[in-house]
Nucleic acid binder design. Structure first.
Length: 474
DNA sequence: TTTTGAGTTGTTCGA
DNA sequence: GTCGAACAACTCAAA
């Protein structure tokens, strides 16, 4: 006789295209749905504050969606192996299903749990639900993992297309009730409620919201993405990243919806989804990626210690409007537009010569889409120490970037209130504005808005020299 | 086997 | 004003 089947939810907080859930449902066994808050497992990379906030709401949505099918979501806290073993003991479950994670800490933990449970005679099955192409599958001609994006993506496009997403199970067999902790007791929401309410204004959570966002994006903006993704005022990006990170939606669903609604025009967007894949593959092959530069010569880079500048960067008070807009967008919304992310990241690393890991940490804590692979990969890219990274001489000029991608200053005005009334001609370089223009806009430099904390030409030259110093050190 | 060309997202300088 | 070149070093795939 077979007992209940446990479905262990992790970063797959959805019912549709959820292979673990579908496989469990197909057996006809009663379903025990469980989520474990395992705070110690990720070590230094435990969930940041913005992620915890999102997780709270996403779990709430999942709980609701499951209960509509008659199944309760069981919440447990503690080490995963103990929580899962406890649930098995309490329910007499004879099988367990989950979707794989690819973070190094999770891979280690899950394979131990899998071995142990199988040793006890349980049926254990895991599935790929969060990547289009699994890391173990993609190898270059020499049999190694790819280190350059374009060949990687070419090979991915030539491989068999990702499978069609699975429908959500129409019905589930409920299991007898099992004790669950209360979500509110987990205290995932931030202590400062003003921050939470600010974030709240910008997002909807859960699978339903994710699917609606995808449908809306794929139906219209996706085809324009190639042309409008860098337009900071128009904001032609999908904003799907937090949904993807928590698995409220799957990359397969995105792939097929974009193909269906945007056709060939959707390829530039899918290429970005490809970068997400590439980052996950890089992290899988290089478990040190979040902490150490892939290019080890960067261990010798002459980084500066400069807590005041770091704080100014975090608070959006560098005196460069585009950088400040980006950092304030982050604080206000838990998100930064991709273009602005690069400029803000480049500024920290190249203008201020502050370690990329400092930026990575801050983003980890404040981004609702914080993802170990994407975050590490992005910072290494911008610092120039990663795979297929930005070359050292590419030092973004925050003024030129602003004038190019936010010509009328809409993005800056949205997030940097004190510059809102400044003439577009000076919106990205207020320190060059005539006094009359500043007066008219109510801007007092050094008082209402800071002067630049570092001069661009000086900082650029300093960054290039620091790089040369690193190269010549042996 | 060796060689060659290209590689997410730029900036600056000099013609 | 516009345009092309230079700005490393290395990986990878194709010839």
């Amino acid at each position: 006789m077979t007992g209940a089947a446990i479905v262990w939810f992790r970063q797959d907080l959805r019912l549709a295209d959820n292979p673990a859930l579908c496989a469990a449902a197909a057996t006809g066994a009663p379903i025990i749905a469980i989520y474990v808050l395992d705070e110690a497992a990720a070590g230094p990379w435990r969930c940041g504050a913005a992620s915890r906030w999102w997780l709270h709401h996403s779990l709430k949505a999942l709980k609701q969606a499951l209960s509509a099918l008659g199944v309760s979501l069981i919440l447990r806290r503690g080490p995963s192996d103990l929580a899962i073993a406890g649930a098995i003991a309490e329910t007499g479950a004879t099988s367990i299903y989950w979707n794989r994670l690819y973070e190094p800490w999770a891979v280690r933990r899950d394979s131990e749990i899998k071995t142990r449970l199988r040793g006890f005679g349980l049926k254990v099955e895991s599935f790929n639900a969060s990547l289009l192409f699994e890391p173990t599958r993609m190898r270059n001609g020499s049999g190694n993992p790819y280190r350059v994006f374009t060949p990687f993506w070419k090979a991915a496009l030539a491989a068999p297309a990702p499978e069609r997403p699975l429908d959500a199970p129409a019905n589930l067999t409920a299991a007898p009730d099992v004790a669950s902790e209360k979500l509110e007791d987990w205290r995932l929401l931030p202590k400062t409620s003003s921050w939470a309410s600010s974030l709240q204004n910008h997002w909807r959570f859960g699978e339903k919201a994710a699917l609606e966002r995808l449908a809306e994006f794929a139906g219209a903006a996706a085809a324009q993405y190639g042309a409008s993704r860098d337009d900071l005022g128009r904001y032609g990006v999908s904003r799907l990243s937090p949904h993807l990170h928590f698995g409220e939606i799957s990359p397969r669903q995105i792939w097929h919806e974009i193909k269906k609604l945007a056709g060939e025009e959707g390829l530039p967007f899918l290429r970005q989804v490809g970068w997400r894949e590439f980052c996950h593959h890089l992290l899988f092959a290089n478990p040190d990626l979040p902490d150490h530069p892939l290019d080890s010569s960067f261990e010798r880079f002459p980084w500066r210690e400069d807590p005041e500048s770091l704080t100014a960067w975090k608070k959006g008070r560098t005196g460069y409007p585009l950088v400040d807009a980006a950092m304030r967008e982050l604080w206000q919304t838990g998100y930064i537009h991709n273009r602005a992310r690069m400029v803000a990241g480049s500024f920290l690393v190249k203008h201020l010569l502050i370690r990329w890991q400092e930026g990575e940490r801050w983003f980890w804590d404040t981004l609702v889409d914080a993802d170990l692979a994407n975050n590490a990969c992005g910072w290494q890219w911008v610092a120039g120490c990663g795979a297929d990274a930005a070359p050292y001489f590419r030092v973004f000029n925050p003024v030129l970037q602003g004038e190019k991608f936010d010509p009328d200053g809409a993005y800056v005005r949205r997030h940097v209130q004190e510059l809102a009334r400044l003439d577009s001609k000076f919106i990205h370089r207020p320190w060059e504005a005539p006094q009359a223009a500043l007066n008219a806009a109510g801007v007092r430099l050094g008082e209402t808005y800071p002067r630049p904390i570092v001069d661009h030409a000086f900082a650029r030259e300093r960054a290039l020299q620091a790089h040369a110093a690193m190269r010549s050190a042996t």
